[in-house]
Computed example of a mutant assay.
Amino acid sequence: MNVEPPIQAKLLRLAAVDAELTRIAHRRTVLPEQQEVDRLEAERNAHKDAAVAVEIVLDDLDRDIRKLEGEVEAVRKREDRDKGMLTAGSVNAKQLTEIQHELGSLERRRSVLEDELLDVMERREASVADHEHAGARLSKTEADLADAQRQRDEALADLAVAQGRCDVDRLDLIALFPADLLAVYDRQRAQHGVGAALLQARRCGACRIELDRGEIARIAKTAPEVVVRCSECGAILVRTKESGL
Rank of each mutant, 00 (worst) to 15 (best):
R150I: 08
A160K: 09
L156P: 13
E114Q: 09
A129P: 09
Q149M: 00
G164K: 02
V120F: 10
A155F: 13
L173T: 02
S105E: 11
I99L: 01
E102P: 06
A136N: 00
A162T: 00
V120D: 05
A175L: 11
I99A: 01
R123H: 03
E154K: 12
V120R: 13
G164M: 01
A143M: 09
V120P: 07
D115W: 15
L117A: 13
V112Q: 14
R109W: 14
L145R: 00
E154A: 15
T141P: 04
V168R: 14
E98L: 15
S111Y: 06
H131A: 10
I174F: 05
V168A: 08
G104L: 07
E107S: 11
V112D: 13
M121D: 06
D158N: 13
D147Q: 12
D167M: 01
A129Q: 12
I174Y: 08
E116H: 11
L118H: 13
T141H: 10
A160I: 06
T97Y: 15
S105L: 12
C166S: 04
L156Y: 14
L173M: 04
G135W: 06
S127K: 03
M121P: 09
C166H: 00
K140G: 08
L113I: 07
L145N: 02
A126T: 08
A134N: 14
A146N: 07
C166D: 02
R150D: 14
D172S: 04
S105G: 14
S139R: 15
Q149Y: 09
R152G: 04
I99Q: 05
A157C: 11
V128S: 06
R109Y: 12
R123C: 11
R170N: 02
A126M: 10
A160S: 05
L145W: 00
L156H: 14
E125L: 07
E98K: 12
G104C: 09
R150P: 07
R108P: 14
C166P: 00
A126C: 06
E154H: 14
L138N: 01
V161L: 12
C166N: 01
A143V: 14
R109D: 15
A155P: 02
S127D: 10
D115N: 01
S111G: 05
A148H: 03
